[in-house]
Design a protein around this nucleic acid. Structure first.
Length: 564
RNA sequence: GCGCCUGUAGCUCAGUGGAUAGAGCAACUGCCUUCUAAGCAGUAGGCCGCAGGUUCGAUCCCUGCCAGGCGCGCCA
């Protein structure tokens, strides 16, 4: 479709006295498909040409020559509306998808470029809660979307494996846990003692001081502290891996904050060397008042480093190691200020890392009961959510398709797909209300709906007696096939837009639209049987749809099942 | 107090400086002897938070206000 728009823009540009890019940017999609494929609003020319928009549109319609591209050109209400030649459009799109197969959306914009994506990044010793779902699935999807554009993608899991919470955990462990508990139920145990620690600390604040001491000992390499820390990290990673396996999420690097620890001293020194730091109440800070921000703390009064120090060190490290074009941080919007500060400090340091750093924020999960807090112990485990979704999917399969083989396997993909898709269909930035009913819904605008549509397409392709072929082009232009094919043709633009906006929901919405149009097609047009050439051509539409749906779901990190 | 984000149908959300603001869920009503009814089709449901401004044209951009969320030097 885009190819046609650009063609039209090129022919239109001289008449409007502008570049073809500008002419392209002017184009709109008419609200009513009956009015055509492309609309050029003429209101903005009225002043300079001193003519009514209506008349301008009329003149353009008369003057323009689009060759065989447009089947109708009309001036209505100040708009120049044009309809593309149906057969040319459908032929072009269908040939493209059938030839390119899965690589139809591939535009190669990112060839030779690298993007580093920091996502998921759970805090060790805290359960992998529903709160981690968003960063994990958004980051996973973005990594696939950028790969699709030809970028080399470096996926980094920036584990929260350092910081004062480990002092707390060590104190709590020595006080409250037995060794065998950590083996039988690692996260559960760490979680329990972490909550209990905070409960006790309310009446015994000296525990907090003890925790600070232990973290200090950890930083200094104390053997006991170190070995406890090591165990906490190991058992936690093992549990996280189960969730990642379920979601199909992988990383290129698992680098905790501890990894950057040896770099911190030189990082602070580098900032100091640029004369950016001042000492305030004994702490080392970068004053950012000139940029309308509170200061960025690099060292506490006691000399210990902070979150910002580690993020600056990590950004410098990533830039040096991977030479990326972009460094994305898929982290909740509550950390917007933090990343603005880090970016500003990097910019002041005059390193390229400053402009490469992009915070990709997302809204929080909200709960009817109020804010969720690990410390208070009210957490919804992601694994439980996924398990419930899978169980429910199994129940639905037994009810709707009892003959299905591999029920458990399919149920897992469908259940997980419902949860993942349910998250990704929302714009990132909005807060999400956690709602079991919506999370476990399989009807309407959901992952299972798209998966089901894909399975339907697969089912037809399995039963077909003839091979898909574009042998009867008239079968591509009926009122149900035409809008579907046009939409399929937008796939490359959709991928590009979702990448530039860091917004997987663009793909999710698109895939829902494709599914809706396909289901309408399916319902109204008989594909199998009938005249051979027409049937083969309709099968080609089914095949093209199946490929786009499969690829779209892949980009979202959802499995496209063949049957369900 | 200051800063950032959000406010669209009963609920969850799309949407664009332009022509009649769209989906899904929930409600009601049709459609399974035809390719998977996790589907399709229909009915109903709207001062696009409020008030100004910019513009030929604002739900969209600007300002103010209201409501909610988040953040604001020694947590991450």
């Amino acid at each position: 479709m885009e190819k046609f728009r650009q063609e039209i823009a090129r022919k239109l540009a001289p008449l409007l006295n502008m570049s073809s890019e500008a002419a392209r940017a002017l184009m709109e999609v008419p609200p009513n498909p009956a009015w055509g494929d492309i609309a050029i609003p003429c209101f903005s020319f009225a002043k300079t040409l001193r003519k009514a928009p209506q008349a301008i549109a009329l003149d353009l319609a008369k003057a323009a020559d689009f060759g065989g591209l447009a089947s109708s050109v009309e001036a209505t209400g100040g708009y120049l509306n044009l309809t593309l030649e149906k057969a040319a459009v459908t032929r072009h799109i269908m040939q493209g998808i059938l030839q390119d197969g899965a690589s139809f959306g591939f535009t190669n914009k990112g060839a030779g470029k690298t993007v580093v994506i920091d996502f998921s990044s759970p805090n060790i010793a805290k359960p992998f809660g529903i709160g981690h779902l968003r960063t994990t699935v958004i980051g996973h999807s973005l990594s696939r979307i950028y790969s699709e554009l030809g970028y080399r993608v470096v996926r980094v899991n920036h584990l929260g494996d350092w910081g004062t919470q480990f002092g707390k955990l060590i104190v709590a462990y020595k006080l409250l846990a037995k060794d065998d508990e950590l083996i039988s139920d690692p996260i559960g145990t760490l979680f329990r003692i972490y909550v209990e620690f905070h409960r006790r600390a309310e009446s015994s604040p000296e525990l907090l001081e003890e925790a600070r001491v232990w973290f200090r000992r950890l930083e200094e390499g104390d053997e006991e502290a170190r070995s406890l820390w090591q165990r906490f990290v190991e058992v936690s990673l093992k549990e996280y891996q189960r969730v990642y396996d379920l979601l199909g999420v992988e990383f290129d690097y698992w680098l905790g904050e501890s990894y950057y620890e040896p770099l911190l001293a030189s990082t602070v020194a580098a900032v100091e060397a640029q004369d950016l730091t001042t000492v305030s109440d004994g702490a080392v800070i970068v004053d950012l008042a000139d940029y309308g921000m509170p200061p960025c703390l690099l060292r506490k009064t006691d000399g210990a480093t902070l979150y910002a120090t580690r993020d600056i060190a990590a950004a410098l490290y990533r830039d040096k190691k991977h030479h990326p074009e972009l460094m994305l941080y898929v982290v909740g919007q509550e950390q917007t200020l933090h990343f603005k500060q880090v970016k500003q400090v990097l910019t002041l340091m005059r390193t390229p890392a400053g402009e490469k750093l992009v915070h990709v924020p997302f809204g929080l999960f909200k709960f009817p009961e109020g804010k969720m807090s690990t410390r208070q112990g009210n957490v919804i485990f992601l694994e439980d959510v996924l398990a419930r979704a899978v169980d429910l999917a199994l129940v639905v399969i037994h009810a709707k398709n009892p003959e299905l083989e591999n029920k458990r396997d399919i149920a897992q993909h469908v259940g997980v797909g419902a949860v993942v898709f349910g998250d990704l269909k929302h714009g990132r930035i909005k807060d999400v209300l956690f709602d079991w009913d919506e999370m476990l819904n399989f009807d309407g605008e959901t992952g299972p709906y798209v998966q089901y549509t894909h399975a339907r397409a697969c089912s037809i392709l399995r039963k077909a007696a003839v091979a898909p072929a574009l042998s009867d082009e008239a079968a591509l232009t009926d009122e149900y096939a035409l809008p579907l094919i046009k939409l399929l043709g937008e796939f490359p633009q959709i991928i590009a837009r979702s990448a530039s906006e860091y917004e997987p929901s663009v793909v999710a919405r698109y895939v829902l639209d494709v599914a809706a149009l396909f289901n309408r097609y399916y319902h109204n047009v008989r594909i199998l049987g009938g005249e051979k050439d027409a049937s083969a051509t309709r099968l080609a539409v089914v095949l093209a749809t199946q490929r786009i749906l499969a690829r779209g779901l892949y980009l979202l990190g959802v499995t496209a099942v063949d049957k369900m």
